[in-house]
């Protein structure tokens, strides 16, 4: 069984926000205006946050999305089991099961589970740009990064039709695909020969707030050296 993981090299990340935009497009996220951001209802599954890293004079910008914890605090508190750790290590959110109680948004130390305050509406001119592989979440559910799980289902289908095994390049989330600085590496952590496995056990690797014991599968690489 695969264990999907993501490595982000902070030495390469320029903070350009291409991943943020690609994610919004891929996953049918509604627009956010300055007004929605002001009231704390910004809708993005990835955000760049300022992080003080040891040995750095200035805060670094750190792309933060669901850390796909192996010990996710959010799933323990869900009263309906709408969020759970799936067999391949992705923290899933089953929207029709979610009652919008927001226990999970509060339990998440990374604040990356986001309550949807708006109906899924887009301007007329953008109606045709909806990704048909991703649902439009209704108002009143909590949503989050899924490592573009729909891409995994589609990739597995293509591989099955071609009669071969899933290859590493078949499944890559939108943010990794777009990153112009090639700061992001995605793959199977349980495969010892994968790039992610090598990077995640390298000397520059660290996990965000790892002292909490959440065991994230998003791994950051320290700057410098």
């Amino acid at each position: 069984m695969s264990r999907w993981g993501l490595v982000i090299d902070l030495d390469r990340c320029t903070g350009c926000q291409a991943c943020v935009v690609a994610c919004k497009h891929e996953n049918n996220l509604p627009f956010s205006t300055p007004e929605t951001a002001d009231v704390g209802r910004l809708m993005t599954w990835i955000q760049l946050v300022a992080a003080d890293l040891p040995g750095r004079p200035m805060p670094s910008s750190l792309p933060l999305m669901c850390q796909q914890c192996d010990r996710p605090p959010c799933t323990d508190v869900c009263p309906t089991s709408a969020t759970y750790l799936n067999p391949e290590g992705i923290v899933a959110q089953i929207y029709p099961r979610c009652i919008g109680c927001r226990y999970c948004t509060n339990a998440c130390p990374y604040a990356v589970k986001i309550f949807n305050w708006t109906e899924p509406e887009w301007p007329e001119s953008m109606a045709g740009m909806r990704n048909p592989d991703v649902s439009a979440r209704p108002k009143g559910v909590v949503e989050k990064c899924t490592f573009c799980h729909h891409r995994l289902i589609a990739a597995r289908e293509r591989a099955r039709v071609a009669g071969r095994e899933l290859a590493p390049e078949d499944y890559v989330p939108a943010c990794v695909q777009i990153c112009p600085a090639e700061a992001m590496t995605f793959g199977d952590l349980s495969d010892p020969h994968s790039d992610v496995a090598a990077l995640a056990s390298g000397p520059r690797a660290f996990r965000w707030m790892e002292e909490l014991g959440t065991q994230p599968k998003v791994v950051y690489l320290r700057e410098g050296e």
Partner: peptide, 8 residues
């Protein structure tokens, strides 16, 4: 039978 396989 994983929920996330059918639900998106």
């Amino acid at each position: 039978e994983d929920c996330a396989g059918c639900h998106r």
